[in-house]
Design a protein around this nucleic acid. Structure first.
Lengths: 135, 135
DNA sequence: CTGGCTGCAAATCTTTTGCATCCTG
DNA sequence: CAGGATGCAAAAGATTTGCAGCCAG
């Protein structure tokens, strides 16, 4: 597994290991700032630049996805399998939506002269917690 | 038409008319900065604050949509009918994708405990111009 | 060893805000 | 007239960058 990274020209430093460890299985769709804060607790010398650099390096290599459902900041997802997202319009929490039933029967080519490479669905809704707690 | 706006508590100032005029039928999915720059040519006293305030007021009243396909900045769309978007992964241009065939047969309730209110598809691809001009 | 990575701080870019003044309805 | 809107400039956030020193491979 660490070999995987090395084979794609990704140097494994202690900082990067901490970031990878934090992202591993993380379903919270964290922002760069959330990742930085979570890690700096145990790793006080971590810097923003390293978090951003690492996220960018991972994104470039397809190891993580940058998701655009939140208009206010970039969020990252270590789950690179086909799936979509849902955001609560009250609290902003982001959840996963499986791509089962492969909802779309989209032509892979030809929409408005674009050659389509992929797509992603943003669902908007109200989560259980917010629904239960009134407006 | 101007009456429509007044009836929903939206005061029509010269600045707002210029913004509305610029957005009318605009298919470029402009950012706040693009709108500001386009208008300040002929309206030198226009300020960013007014552009942002107006976009926020229009969004709140459902007259325009804020689209999240571009991770770097907010883009706005005066077309509020059901449709989706496609962004060119090379040049960043954003196009419309009709919602015909109502591609999704999604349940309106029940995904991951969320009550779904709406959805939007981000398509990613390569536009005609970029495809033609090599890498 | 060496090129890529880190940490710091400053810079940049986008968006928001405070406030005195203005003007639409 | 009154309350909402404007313009300016400063503030606030998020993200990027320059660079000297460090360290994984």
């Amino acid at each position: 597994m660490m070999k995987e990274y090395r084979n794609i020209g990704f140097k494994l430093t202690p900082q990067r290991l901490a970031i990878l460890d934090h992202l591993q299985g993380n379903k919270s769709h964290p922002t760069a700032d959330e990742i930085y804060r979570a890690i700096s607790k145990r790793f006080p010398t971590m810097s923003f630049a390293t978090v951003y650099n690492t996220l960018e390096a991972l994104k470039k290599r397809g190891m993580i996805l940058e998701i655009t459902i939140d208009p206010d900041k970039k969020r990252f997802d270590p789950d690179t399998t086909a799936h979509h997202h849902i955001i609560c319009i009250r609290c902003g929490k982001v959840g996963d939506v499986p791509d089962n039933q492969s909802v779309l029967n989209m032509p892979k080519i030809g929409i408005r002269g674009f050659k389509i490479t992929k797509w992603h669905i943003d669902f908007h809704g109200i989560c259980k917690e917010c629904e239960g707690s009134g407006s």
